[in-house]
Design a protein around this nucleic acid. Structure first.
Lengths: 203, 203, 203, 203
DNA sequence: AATGAATGAGCGTTCATTCAT
DNA sequence: TATGAATGAACGCTCATTCAT
């Protein structure tokens, strides 16, 4: 967690630092990132960095926090309406919001990837904190669909949610990194939704 | 590619080095891995390391090569029988072989993960070489199922294969890393197969 | 070129580093010189070295720069008077200044030697920058002598200047390295001047 | 000095090793030369190298020995005739022989250069051994000229010989390294001879 | 609080030389 | 005697972190 000194900075300065760090981590990954470049980019002194953050890891986790928070905010509209919608509608909504978010903040996804893949050591503690948030989302959709009696018999909801989560996360990453044409992309998305719906809906 | 000197070593010594390297890379990842620990572990001199390998990267790629080769070998029985089996049978076979392989060599999976996630720079060249192998496997199963008229209408085979690939890879990793009870695990596997079958099979 | 951080140091510290480097390079030559000794000698941290200089080569060239600059400064008085003097006077002046400089900074000569002899790769770019300065000096003297009609017939001035340059440089180095008695030395110098004068002056 | 084992080798093998070493030393200089390349080039085992030579230096000095010996041989014809010739004739002879030798074995010159310039440490012992040979040559010419009463008054013969030696050595190196046109080269040589003759001959 | 120089452990890599066969 | 693998000290360089002002 950043120190109080960091929060005493103007929003402008804070944002500049966060941006520089995000760029650095996305470009080089955590291990090969380099504080010198971050402070040069954000035009603060090396010493100041350590007035704001405990260490490199502290900054990294701070970014993760921002991402998670912002992403959850993007989903607030969804939480107001999902109970009145069908599974298919909800699912498309969730997917679309996630995709828009990824489109608007592509680096957030990449950083998340870097993070979740590279650091089995960090991960336990972290997943414990954040994973539920993402999973919860799909859980809501699935539970609602279950209430609406849209799901196939004897479905194992927790695992199904994990499968969906995995599929969506990784497919999104593929889409972001491969930058294909919009048409190809829509095709993938459309197929993915059909795939998932086929997998979970009552025949 | 390792130098000839490496292949001149006894199998024992080679294996020891490969084991030490595998452990190191799995524990620390490529960037934080450290040759000093590898040579200490495998009880060779630092200089010997450079008689065997060009550099750290060379060793890393050598391990990837081993993994890919061994994994392909594990699948050879499958290739002899898949044409006479149904989709469900084939799919379970493929999954089971993959799982057995992962069980026998859990670190291979983790290294592969480390590799495919971390190094966009290496990856293009490498994926070009190896990715088709893995994907091909599921492609075979799906195509065979299509011939058997087991698939749902208007299925987009290439994307479907990618989804399946993603699901299986990531789920396997989850299973390997989480080490749950055998019972929980079987439950996950069973659910995954149902999930995929539901997603692709004709109703 | 040293980084700004180097120039931010006190003159004392800079000089200490330069001295240590000069000693090191003169004693061991560029290839066998060793940064650890330099930083130990100048009592700075290894890391600080790399805050001041790009790398070993950067420091080396910095010393060359100092030498060339200082040497040129030593000749400024000469440039104010040479037009009013005879060839013999000028030649003795130039020689004396060069010798005094070498006496005051014997290591400068040795470093220059090390430099010009060892690195055909560096040299082209560098000679292009500095060589003319040294040669020009003798060129001035000779041209002035020519204007004064002191030279023998059909003399080939460019080559003559090169011969003189060679003779003087190498003889100076011999004198510096051999440390003979002052008397022997004066004898050599006196003979060299006679030798050169005989070679170029009108009978 | 090479060990007896080296001289037990066939001439072919010895020559191959010497050639490889010469190429290596000329290309990289002593410090950056590398025994691995030499043994690879001459197709002997690394261990054999140390059966033949004490160490790297031993090989290096062996080459110097070869060069000096061969060069002296090139001058034997001269020693048979110089007493019957004038100074100018002798001087041109000596110069021509030296130049032919340099033309035939350009690498010998470069190695000699590398040697004499880089290693003030070695040099004392070595110069003591070989320098006289080279200097002697010019000494013969000059002494003969003195006997013939061709030299200017009160000439200091030892120093004069050193000057001539310096001039010729360095000019030859310049010619070898700069590879100018034959015409330019002849011009330099011709001028150098005039320069030296003017410097030493009676008016 | 802000600065940026100072620090030094640690890294990958090289290579002359020794050793075991 | 011939071989080439084994050795390890040593190098140049990096960078997160601390310190002094």
């Amino acid at each position: 967690m950043p120190k109080q000194t960091f929060y005493n900075l103007t929003l402008d300065k804070r944002t500049k630092i966060e941006q520089a760090a995000l760029d650095e981590f996305v470009e080089y990954g955590f291990d090969n990132s380099n504080i010198s470049r971050i402070v040069a980019q954000s035009k603060i002194a090396k010493g100041s960095f350590y007035q704001y953050f405990e260490d490199k890891k502290d900054l990294y986790f701070h970014l993760i926090d921002i991402i998670v928070t912002q992403k959850m905010q993007a989903f607030t509209p969804f939480f107001k309406t999902y109970q009145d919608h069908t599974f298919s509608e909800n699912f498309r909504d969730v997917f679309q919001i996630g995709l828009d978010f990824a489109d608007t903040h592509p680096k957030y996804y990449l950083l998340g990837e870097d993070f979740t893949k590279k650091h089995p050591a960090f991960i336990r503690e972290f997943v414990a904190k954040y994973q539920p948030l993402a999973v919860d989302l799909y859980m809501q959709v699935i539970k609602q669909a279950d209430l609406n009696n849209e799901l196939r018999e004897r479905i194992d909801i927790p695992n199904t949610v994990l499968f969906i989560n995995t599929l969506i996360n990784n497919t999104m990453i593929d889409l972001i990194m491969d930058n294909r044409s919009k048409k190809q992309r829509d095709q993938v998305i459309s197929e993915l939704i059909i795939f998932i719906e086929s997998a979970v809906k009552r025949a």
